[in-house]
Design a protein around this nucleic acid. Structure first.
Lengths: 337, 337
DNA sequence: GTGAAAGCGCTAACAC
DNA sequence: GTGTTAGCGCTTTCAC
């Protein structure tokens, strides 16, 4: 069984008590500089590593935070995590990662089996179609703070960090209108997610502002994948009354729609305008390049983590909602040449 | 300060000793079925959550494994992590995530500050240009097993999991040759990484087999980014003696090269053949689509984690090297129409 | 089959 | 400024 150097070893070496060693190591004020220096010297010579299980037990806190999200294999989420990791690392916190695969059952299971006693807080982006929040309520009741990001819920009194989905969508659609498109469809995400709803609202508001008709059959709710984009586009472009533009809830769906249109000989930009959401690197790679709303994913990660640490460190810190603006990036897919 | 239900609470409730509760909870053989059932019932009724800091302290083990890698914002690594996470989750282990940003200094810093006493093992993919391995040796000396994946080192006696870089590269280059390209350049990664070296060797072997000349100036070592791909291509295509094909160390660089060629009016496939490595989703999105060697990233993640758990659970498990074959995926970028 | 007690490594009163 | 001691929640001998 492996054994590491403990403060007891240091104490014995120096013939002082463990509490002094403990104090010296944590740089508490009331310890003689000389003894502290000696302790520090021995500690590094012996290559002392603190045992965080013990610290956690004694202080009833670890320096761990859980990050729970649907996927990590896409640009947005992987960038958010990088942001989270960045501030966690600076502040000496560890990230414990859980991925739900966007399944509510797995999310529930993860939450119920969380090593909650060794977690100082949670950062979560909920799964689609998860309509119950009791499992989160229970966590909160145990005084473990949660900060939601991106896929948030309004049912819970917690901090949340999101991009401005409503205005981003509004701007995207208005951009299409200004470029001469009038029959604009929206291929949306699962109806249950707040951010899908907000993007839909932004879409509707832009249509309304410009007195364009809203057609039920031009609003399609499905999943977030490229394949969903293909299917949604195929649905839109097989019947009568075809749209002349598509606002997609994200870039992957937009790209799916584009591949469908391209393989059916429909000229993107010229005949049908497309705007996505995210600014996934693929949106620049595809041709024609894809107009999109850029999300500050890295900043969202950073901010979420900062907020969570604030909650962890200050018990009565008031929940906040932070909204980051998106940014329209005009490329080829939304302009008639 | 938050407080959870402990085994003491359960013991008191049932008027039995904590040790019995502990045994019942862990389903140890020598406990009466009746009492065990009662314990289990109360535990779930009181919503008991084990304190892993305490378990870890007592058993000198946590159920945490650290994953240390350069980035998570690309297809390959994010998919590997998903695979790791998959088996870790099945087996009840937590993933503690560290990202080095491919900086050797940060890698060193992370390793030196690891909560090593509460880590059962490490899964690592090393940073480019990290030429010292002492920090890993120290970990291993402390009997904490490490499994390397993708970016591995041969200097250490540990298990490792990689794709077949040599044969993948060989196949890629041979495919170009079979399609009529004869002046094949290689835009490589940092020379210090083993897998870069292996792909280079595969490239050279294929040239040799087909009696094609090796030109020093057609082999460029730089970074892994799309931008590096652009620069490398611009270098290759500004002098005299331009190649008629490029084998790129990964898809991102291949894509960078393609954007350079496209914006310079050079016809990909027809005039210059390109093959990448990874099978990043972007390789299908770009047009012309990119021929590449697919890597089983998810499987590599799964296998690495399985191996690590084996090492954790069986102290004398012999280090293994697992090599996964790649698979040539022929698309448009490497065929003359 | 069950209980008492010691101990994992550290922190935090409380003394002095 | 430093030492003594109890205790964090759990596991594990060792008795019985």
């Amino acid at each position: 069984m492996k054994r590491f150097i403990t403060i007891k070893d240091i104490a014995k070496e120096l013939n002082i008590s463990v509490s002094t060693v403990s104090r010296a190591l944590r740089d508490t004020y009331d310890v003689n500089k000389e003894t502290r220096d000696k302790v520090l010297e021995i500690a590094s010579r012996l290559n002392y590593k603190p045992n965080f299980n013990a610290t956690g037990l004694a202080k009833r806190s670890s320096h761990n935070i859980a990050v729970i999200l649907p996927f990590i294999t896409n640009y947005y989420f992987s960038t958010v995590i990088t942001g989270i990791q960045e501030v966690a690392y600076e502040k000496g916190y560890n990230i414990v990662l859980y991925v739900t695969n966007d399944s509510p059952e797995r999310e529930l299971n993860i939450i119920n089996n969380l090593p909650i006693t060794s977690l100082d807080g949670l950062l979560v982006s909920i799964a689609s179609n998860s309509d119950s929040y009791e499992h989160f309520e229970e966590i909160i009741a145990n005084e473990t703070p949660i900060v939601f990001f991106d896929r948030v819920t309004n049912h819970l009194e917690t901090s949340r960090v999101i991009q401005d989905d409503y205005n981003g969508a509004f701007e995207a659609v208005e951009h299409l209108i200004e470029n001469g498109y009038t029959k604009i469809a929206h291929i949306a995400g699962p109806a249950s997610l707040t951010f899908t709803q907000n993007r839909l609202k932004g879409y509707l508001a832009a249509l309304e502002k410009h007195h364009l008709e809203v057609r039920e059959e031009w609003i399609i709710h499905s999943g977030f994948s490229q394949k969903d984009g293909v299917e949604d586009a195929s649905f839109l472009f097989t019947g009568e009354n075809r749209p002349d533009a598509i606002f997609a809830v994200n870039d992957r769906k937009a790209i799916g729609a584009m591949t469908y249109l391209k393989s059916n000989g429909i000229k993107i930009g010229q005949e049908v305008g497309i705007v996505g959401f995210t600014n996934d690197p693929s949106s620049e790679i595809i041709s024609p390049s894809l107009t999109t709303i850029a999300e500050p994913a890295f900043e969202i990660g950073r901010k979420s983590c900062e907020l969570l640490l604030r909650h962890i460190e200050k018990k009565y810190f008031q929940p906040q909602e932070i909204v980051f603006p998106g940014k329209l990036i005009v490329r080829e897919s939304s302009v008639k040449v």
